[in-house]
Nucleic acid binder design. Sequence first.
RNA 1: GGCGACGUAGCCAAGGGGCCUAAGGCAGGGGAUUGCAAAUCCCCCAUCCCCGGUUCAAAUCCGGGCGUCGCCUCCA
Length: 476
Amino acid sequence: MLHLYNTLTGEQEKFEPLEEGKVRFYSCGPTVYDYFHIGNARPFIVFDALRQYLVFKGYEVEFTQNVTDLDDKIIDRAEEEGVEPEELAEEYAEAYFEDLDKLGVKEADYVPRVTEYVEQIIEHVSALVEKGYGYEVKGDVYFRVREFSDYGKLSGRSIDDLKSGARVEVEAKKEDPLDFALWKSSNPDEPGWESPWGRGRPGWHIECSVMAQTTLGESIDIHAGGHDLIFPHHENEIAQSEARTGKQFCRYWIHNGLLEFEGEKMSKSLGNFEYAREVLDDYDRETVRYFYFSTHYRKPLNFSEKNLEDAKSAVNRVYEFLSNVDELDTGGGDSESSLSEYGKNLLDRIETARDRFEEEMDKDFNTPGGLGVIFDLVKQANKFRDKGKSENRHLLKKAKSKVQELSEPLGLFQGREEASASGLEEDLLELLLEVRNELRDQGDWELADRMRSELEEMGIEVKDQEGETTWSVDRN
RNA sequence: GGCGACGUAGCCAAGGGGCCUAAGGCAGGGGAUUGCAAAUCCCCCAUCCCCGGUUCAAAUCCGGGCGUCGCCUCCA
């Protein structure tokens, strides 16, 4: 039984969807005014993996992740670059999909864009105005925060706390400084749509409410996003949604911890970020994914080269195991009844692995714990391989497929696309290694070793293992 | 100032009252194997931020500190 830490209650709770066996899941997507950075990638990767894990557990999942293609940041940036906002948004939306693909994140079931939902947004805002939660002032429409008695329930603050915070800028137009914009009037040179309040565009938070509810329904099961979105973004989403429907908008609110860089939150405004695509130039996707899964999603995580290098070595360990198993002869061996101590131990691990894995993962999507189970399996299998040389080899195949079965929802260890050599290169390489092996036969270790180390510098790793020479290409 | 998260080995990181004589990974040291490497195996490497308390029993619960980060303004 999956448990999730729910920001709304501040506790880890049993996860029980509204409709048995089915999960409606919304995760906040990007505002496409720039490439996303490696910190932005965390929720994309982690929540997609949670979605895959739910599928792994047998749920039917409907997953929505929006693209905000209309926003003041887009307008500002477009102006700086002298292009149309739509053009800029389109460019970065495409880049977003490319980067997601490189990270191994599967596309959501619904990928709504704000510009396609303006009509529904207007309808939603109108409904709020009718109910007395929204009010218009000179073409802008604001949400009357004091009208919504549950305001602050997600972020754990009261309206009075917020008042005393005093960092809320006072806009003369608003009835109350805490009220937030549902609709904003547009200048003639800004993108705008006709509405009951004149030409304008949606406010900052309304899009998510509308797109979540349009694609998934008035009440959804999970809503996810970065920890920094709790207030005001998600708080406002709740207010807008529940004020209109009178129903609970979402039951489980989950938030990922932020990525830090040298002790500070990585963010665009601080300028201490690295684009995801830049990181992917240096590290493959599985390294990046492992890096995220090696820490619980709610914890802050430090971005550093050391951490990425560690992740890379760890990923390599599993791939070494996988390819070592492939290189074994497929011979059957003894029956399972005559297994040695190591064999019995491994068989037991294989049989209990899935339960142990789910036990860990069910604790608020504890990926480090889940990885521990997978690595333990690898360790036991290696031990068996080393100690029980004459034994049943298909046990190792079993171990391999169990490792891959469990890693699947994490998008790990399914087989990486080797940077392959072209046909000609491959032939040349084979020739080279043949010559090298003749040198070895003749005892010319010096030259043979030189060949090996120079190939390694080119990213080609050569191993002489059990009388056979193998090679592989490392892209990084 | 208000609200919140976090603090476990050299590093990353699980564990949340007794199975902890604290998983797993990375790095390091010693050994096995290897022509040498690589891979693999074996061994070594922590008393859990501090101080009080609750309990037969606490890394785990409670109180108080200290520290780090975040939110209260656009931000994943």
